[in-house]
Nucleic acid binder design. Structure first.
Length: 846
RNA sequence: GCCCGCUUGGUGGAAUGGUAGACACAACAGACUUAAAAUCUGUCGAUCGAAAGGUCGUGCCAGUUCGAGUCUGGCAGCGGGCACCA
């Protein structure tokens, strides 16, 4: 028997055998368990983040399979999106060719990992077989009033003549052209996610197995707030501005009205005011990124107009167009109360506006003050608390018909139009007679034409000579197709349903979807905590409203994994270097090409731009799938970032070989053991190993259930280390070793399925270990007869004592107070308190 | 700027409010070997001490508690998200 595990031979052998025996084919039986890893974008090569994600999913899928569940564990491709178009522009490859090539590579790489996917359910979002159903869903949304059209802003590159994504805008300039980007208005399709805002918020409370942090982020994103809508009539014009505020109590501290530069009233004003027009243009040079708008210097434009204060006769407030007022939140108009708001304060100082405190700061701290306190300088509100004042103001506003109570959400409707080629066509026809006409369902899919080029600016669909011209399905008049395509988030908002019946002529079969959903365990990166997960939750509810199913939440349990990081290297010139361009010579890292020293940077998320990517395929080639899988599970808990190191992968490889040597070196001894002939008596050594075997089953089971995968690996190692030292001498000990090895092979199988399968065969069993039931711990072995108790005096550890956990407090106290290291501390002092937690600790308080 | 996290030895990390550092990695010393690789054994938070043992120690500052890495408040550093990257 070789002392090195031949992973190349065995991994290929078992992957082939599993595939031929259709081991991972989904069977619709109860109890069911749906494991899903986030749909990958086919970037070309498998990276470590993917490997980590799929290994996490595979462990739970295999463990649940062994525990008697029927598993749905599918895989597919989020195949539309921007990078394919960038590749087309840069390298002249057609997006479809580029994407399918990437899928082909990545699929091969994923398959080499031996993940238990049912590949017969694979989906590809850029295939008309997939997006035709998305088009149908969109038309249903339209019927149901969930989809609608409105104007909104995009980043416009005036040189390229194209719309840019936020990531393509760098410091306010187009990434290719370098031209300053402007915010431009376009008519686009939106989905009414705001109609579901309250339900999306309320249902978070039922998602018991989602990380709190994700639920908090979603709740803040939805951003429900209670406040008031206040009417401010303009003095100079017949016009009333509506303001939404969460702080109506500070109304007497108002010193100005701020209105968004994108507000229709401002646009109207600008038509006759060139200076205002210039100001708006400046504001729009910021692009659409919220971060840029909020971090920009606060600027205002005094319109010269004034509004009347709702409660103070003869008191007027100036109307400023302010760059920090967002058109998408509230009404796009605010009243500024500088004494109690950071932004308003900054603005007021800059434009020399009055700052009148209306809430008394009990600490007399500096302004602005945002805390609680009693109202001052506020007429009828004086002496009230903030809460009372809010109620009173709203009451008076209602009485005077100048406002109402109002609930507002930060959440905005979801714009799904993209002015791009590589996405699902929006199934709409624009007819000059009939207006907006949905493509009739029997004409779906609206297929993306393939004969396009990227040699001119803008969306190739727009300049396509034939595709966009059709006759109106209603009146027959020559019309034009919608040339925008869907946001790719649409594709990933319902794919989990398609997997349930991937070949259906409908988007999905209701029966199958309702059988499998919700997804029992969803796993993916924390970077998707808000957008993707919120959109998928929204789609689920919207589909319910359209009568597709009776499901409200798609994902029951959620695991958000951290990123895979690696050290970064730069040469003397400061250029990033790949790990394979660097080597250690005489204890120093040098550039292989010329031997010059390398600057080692801190560990960062693996990314192409920093060159700190380790390709997964290379590691699988060198060490095998089980080794890379084991390393991904070791050391770091799933939620945390993972540090990729060469030494770490080596360590995992050593463990694989250790298990291989351990089991194969005892094979001849074990062949004589008959599992059914349980010995009547066991030696002490045997009992100790049996105890550890069952304890390990119990610990490992808990570890997997709780996703403590790093502890799962640690417990396997501890078990293996103990078995290495165990040299069996009599029949009971051989039987014990037999039990221990079978347990070990079963326990490693979710993580190391190829090695487990190999050893299972070596132990003389027919395939497949992956179909074997999960081992059960015998409770008789889990009870501790003696425990080590920590003994503290005044909370400080002074020693330990091995005793039975069943001793009473009095028995324990008598023993402990007699211990020499306790008496030395206690001396003559009276014992004030004696704390005794059986099995854990005793604390003598003096 | 706003929202959400994270911070423990040389390194990754372990620890239902109860013996801080499990399990690994690296390093060092040794065994085996002609040699190397592989494998095995030992040491491995800091500090004082010949030893027994003591003292300090979980980013920083306070607090709650018999007892805090863990809970609370504040601060710092790092990371994720911010609506057209996915």
């Amino acid at each position: 028997m070789s002392t090195r595990y031949n992973f190349r031979e065995y991994e290929a052998k078992w992957q082939k055998a599993w595939a031929e025996a259709l081991v991972y084919q989904t069977k619709e039986k109860t109890p069911k368990y749906y494991v899903l890893e986030m749909l990958p974008y086919p970037s070309g090569r498998l990276h470590m983040g993917h490997v980590r994600n799929y290994t996490f999913g595979d462990v739970i899928a295999r463990y649940k399979r062994a525990s008697g569940y029927s598993i749905l564990h599918p895989m597919g491709w989020d195949a539309f999106g921007l990078p394919a178009e960038n590749a087309a522009i840069q390298h002249g490859v057609h997006p479809k060719v580029w994407t399918l090539e990437n899928v082909r590579f990545m699929k091969e790489e994923i398959q080499s990992l031996g993940i238990s996917y049912d590949w017969s359910r694979e989906i590809l979002t850029c295939s008309p077989d997939y997006y035709r159903h998305e088009q149908k869903i969109f038309l249903d949304f339209l019927k149901q009033g969930i989809a609608y059209r409105k104007e909104s802003f995009v980043n416009w590159d005036p040189v390229e003549g194209t719309v840019l994504a936020n990531e393509q805008v760098i410091d306010g300039k187009g990434w290719r052209s370098g031209a300053p980007v402007e915010r431009r208005k376009l008519s686009q399709w939106f989905l009414k996610i705001t109609d579901f805002a309250q339900e999306l918020l309320d249902d978070l409370t039922h998602l018991d197995h989602w990380p709190e942090q994700v639920k908090t982020m979603q709740a803040n994103w939805i951003g429900r707030s209670k406040g008031a809508l206040i009417h401010f009539p303009l003095i100079e014009k017949e016009e009333v501005l509506e303001v939404f505020t969460t702080r109506p109590d500070t109304i007497f501290g108002a010193s100005f009205i701020g209105i968004s530069p994108d507000h229709p009233f401002v646009e109207e004003l600008a038509k006759t005011a060139p200076a205002l027009h210039t100001f708006i243009t400046e504001c729009r040079a910021l692009g659409t990124s919220q971060k840029d708008v909020e971090t920009a210097e606060k600027k205002g434009f005094n319109t010269g107009l004034t509004v009347r204060h709702p409660f103070l006769k003869n008191h007027t407030l100036p109307l400023y167009v302010a760059n920090f007022v967002l058109i998408d939140y509230g009404t796009g108009v605010i009243f500024g109360c500088p004494a109690h708001d950071e932004r308003d304060y900054e603005f007021a100082v800059k434009y020399k506006l009055p700052i009148l405190p209306v809430i008394k700061d009990p600490q007399e701290g500096p302004l602005p003050y945002g805390g609680e306190g009693l109202l001052i300088n506020s007429e009828f509100l004086n002496g009230l608390t903030v809460e009372e004042a809010k109620k009173e103001v709203i009451h008076r506003l209602v009485t005077k018909k100048l406002g109402t109570a109002q609930i507002s959400y930060k959440l905005r409707d979801w714009g799904v139009s993209r002015q791009r080629y590589w996405g699902a066509p929006i199934p709409i026809i624009h007819c000059t007679h009939c207006g907006i006409v949905p493509v009739p369902e029997d004409q779906l899919p609206v297929t993306l034409p393939e004969d396009v080029t990227f040699d001119q600016p803008g969306n190739p669909l727009d300049s396509h000579p034939t595709w966009k011209y059709v006759d109106c399905p209603v009146c027959g008049h020559p019309s034009e197709r919608e040339t925008d395509t869907f946001d790719t988030f649409m594709d990933s908002s319902w794919y989990f349903a398609r997997y349930c019946s991937p070949h259906s002529a409908q988007p999905f079969e209701r029966k199958e979807a309702e059988f499998w959903l919700p997804v029992d365990q969803y796993i993916g990166g924390i970077e998707h905590a808000i957008l993707h997960l919120l959109y998928a939750r929204f789609f689920t509810k919207a589909l319910r409203e359209c009568g597709y199913w009776n499901i409200s939440e798609p994902f029951k349990n959620l695991l958000t994994q951290g990123m895979v990081c690696h050290e970064t290297y730069r040469d003397q010139a400061g250029s990033w270097l790949y790990p394979n361009q660097v080597e250690r010579r005489d204890g120093q890292l040098v550039k292989i090409a010329d031997g010059t020293p390398v600057k080692v940077g801190r560990s960062e998320k693996m990314s192409k731009s920093k060159c700190n990517v380790v390709p997964a395929a290379k590691i699988v080639e060198e060490y095998g799938a089980d080794t890379i899988r084991l390393f991904m599970l070791s050391d770091s808990p799933p939620e945390r970032d993972f540090e990729w190191t060469e030494a770490g992968i080596e360590g995992s490889w050593r463990y694989i070989n250790k298990v291989w040597r351990l089991v194969t070196s005892h094979l001849s001894d074990l062949r004589t053991v008959k599992a059914d002939d349980v010995p009547l008596t066991f030696t002490d050594n045997a009992l100790e190993i049996r105890k550890l075997t069952h304890k390990t089953i119990s610990l490992v089971t808990q570890d997997i259930e709780r996703f403590h995968y790093n502890r799962y690996v640690a417990h396997l190692r501890e078990f293996t280390n103990a078995l290495e030292e165990f040299i069996p001498n009599d029949a009971s000990e051989f039987w014990t070793l037999h039990e221990a090895f079978h347990t070990l092979v079963l326990l490693i199988s979710p993580a190391l399925p190829h090695l487990a399968e190999t050893l299972w065969a070596e132990l003389g069993h027919p395939p497949f270990v992956v179909n074997q039931p999960w081992p059960q711990a015998d409770p008789a072995f889990l009870r501790e007869e003696e425990v080590t108790l920590a003994i503290q005096v005044n909370g400080k550890l002074r020693g330990t004592l091995v005793i039975s956990p069943d001793l009473s407090v009095d028995e324990a106290k008598a023993l402990i107070l007699d211990l020499p290291f306790v008496t030395a501390q206690v001396q003559d002092s009276p014992v004030k308190k004696f704390i005794y937690i059986p099995g854990k600790i005793a604390n003598v308080v003096l």
